[in-house]
Design a protein around this nucleic acid. Structure first.
Lengths: 143, 143
DNA sequence: AATAAAACCAAGTAGTTTACTTGGTTTTAA
DNA sequence: TTAAAACCAAGTAAACTACTTGGTTTTATT
């Protein structure tokens, strides 16, 4: 049940963007440096986030990335799902897909997988980038 | 965030054991046949479950496996963790391990990973094999 | 107009992990 | 004595991960 680097780096990058956004686009180079990530690899992740409508990009010199919505309107769930796909622990409970397993209707383990999926979705969809900023502020207050 | 076949097959095998236990040990061959799984592969998983104290084995002819506790005293969480390790989405929040990341103390994303981990643990530890048997009974009642 | 900074894009790739299989040995009821 | 079963260790093909490489296109700045 590990998250891959896509989800992990994606959340870090989006948090970095949220923390350092000032109306100006933020170049990937800065995000990569601050978060200690490979710029070329991050580029691929940003493509996914852009396709999902979570960031906007500005090309050319002085370009970069900006959040497409305010930090309190972007959830961790949206970020992770756009990079990793469904949070379903097993394919047969992927949202929006019809299970190809003919036992699906009366499958007992499937009930379990669905509960796990729903629980994960519930947490990740309840955490916004703003929540992370608030956590950051309370950790660093007074410094 | 996919579960590997270890966790999936492990839960299926344990459910099968719970459903078909009558005091007599159940040979792996039967479980594998009923669940449509490879017997040789299941063997490896049973070794893990035995080490975790979730099943007992009886060697020799007429041998097999038995649940080590009653179905209402075995949770899905115990099964999955014994086969897959921690449910932590990221290594730095694996229970009982000290994170080697020197930023761990003031890491904001870590707070997120911990929430996901706790939420997953909470669901899987709340579901017992007895719950699955009950689900099974209500699906098949009247047949 | 030239330069450089940046996003965008496609393909390659080493290493790891997964999901098994194979080929045994040991134990024990019948 | 036989056969059924658990137990054990090692091998392996395929898939996946986490990148890198080598470009192109766009655009603000000089």
């Amino acid at each position: 049940m590990r998250l891959s680097t896509k989800g992990r780096y994606g959340v870090k990058a989006m948090f970095d963007l949220a923390l350092h956004s000032s109306g100006e686009p933020v170049p990937l180079k800065l995000i990569a440096e601050r978060q200690g990530l490979s710029e070329a690899y991050l580029e691929q992740l940003m493509a996914g986030l852009r396709r999902a409508g979570l960031v906007n990009s500005v090309r050319g010199a002085q370009g970069g990335y900006m959040l497409a919505h305010s930090p309190d309107n972007i959830t961790i769930g949206e970020i992770i799902r756009s990079l990793e796909g469904s949070m379903a622990p097993v394919d047969c409970v992927t949202e929006g897909e019809v299970s190809e397993c003919e036992k699906a209707e009366y499958c007992v383990t499937r009930i379990v997988w669905r509960k796990i999926r729903d629980s994960i979705n519930q947490v990740v969809d309840s955490i916004t980038l703003q929540d992370m900023i608030n956590d950051y502020s309370s950790i660093h207050k007074g410094q």
